[in-house]
């Protein structure tokens, strides 16, 4: 437990030193959403219909931006080898790293989503499903992405491969996440897709750290 707390604290300390690292994904998120609006007519009323898709794709791209570095820097400075030989269970260490990644890159996006949603013309009552959906969905992005980052760690072309491997795995999260907002817009129940998201999150949190640990061990054999 102490070791896990140390890993968590180390992640946060490293992030505090390299501010550009964790400021970039939310900034990127804001820019993607803004540029999308420039691609439509000013004050296009249809923008609200596309808002869920735009916000979710933006969140996805922002998460991908920081995922490649999740294990790369640890591999370069030898921390990863230390983790592999340490007595701490690797899957728990992977879990803590995923948690730290979400805190630094997922949570800011959840917080930014509401104002950006308003900018895209989303009605205030529909912000609830949007923010809740992102709160349940962005950890999925961190953990699914973390698993893929573990698979591609140490590969010379890993950076290009990462998005291609992550995107098909993330399809249901995007469908339910954006779908809950669309359901609310159509006056339907937004709760059902959120429950599905919660189910996917549970599956992700329990299975993927374990598989990511197996992937890391495989990469270092």
């Amino acid at each position: 437990m102490k070791a896990l707390a140390a890993i968590f604290a180390r992640e946060l300390r490293l992030a505090a030193r390299a501010k550009a690292e964790w400021l970039m994904p939310p900034l990127f998120f804001v820019i993607v959403v803004t540029v999308f609006s420039f691609g439509t007519r000013p004050n296009d009323p249809q923008l609200a219909a596309f808002a869920p898709a735009v916000l979710w794709v933006g969140a996805l791209l922002a998460a991908l931006l920081s995922l490649e570095r999740l294990y790369r820097t640890d591999q370069e400075d030898g921390t990863l080898e230390q983790l592999l030989v340490s007595r701490t269970a690797l899957s728990f260490a992977v879990f803590v790293k995923g948690l730290a990644h979400w805190l630094l890159s997922g949570l800011p996006i959840v917080l930014l989503a509401a104002p950006l949603g308003l900018m895209l013309g989303l009605a205030p009552p529909h912000l609830g499903p949007l923010v809740l959906g992102l709160a349940l969905g962005t950890p999925c992005l961190s953990f699914i992405g973390g698993f893929v980052a573990a698979l591609t760690v140490g590969l010379p072309r890993g950076g290009a491969l990462l998005p291609v491997l992550v995107l098909p795995l993330i399809v249901p999260v995007v469908i339910f996440g954006a779908g809950s907002v669309r359901a609310a817009q159509q006056g339907l129940d937004a709760g059902a897709p959120l429950y599905f998201l919660a189910a996917i999150l549970t599956l992700t949190l329990t299975l993927l750290p374990w598989l990511a640990a197996a992937a890391l061990r495989n990469a270092f054999e």
């Binding site: 698993f147 098909p168 897709p193 996917i200």
Partner: peptide, 19 residues
């Protein structure tokens, strides 16, 4: 490892797309 995660993913994708 990727194929196994994908295999779990396939029915979820199918269900989500139907929804």
């Amino acid at each position: 490892l990727l194929a196994i995660v994908g295999l779990v993913n396939v029915p979820i994708v199918h269900f989500s797309v139907e929804w």
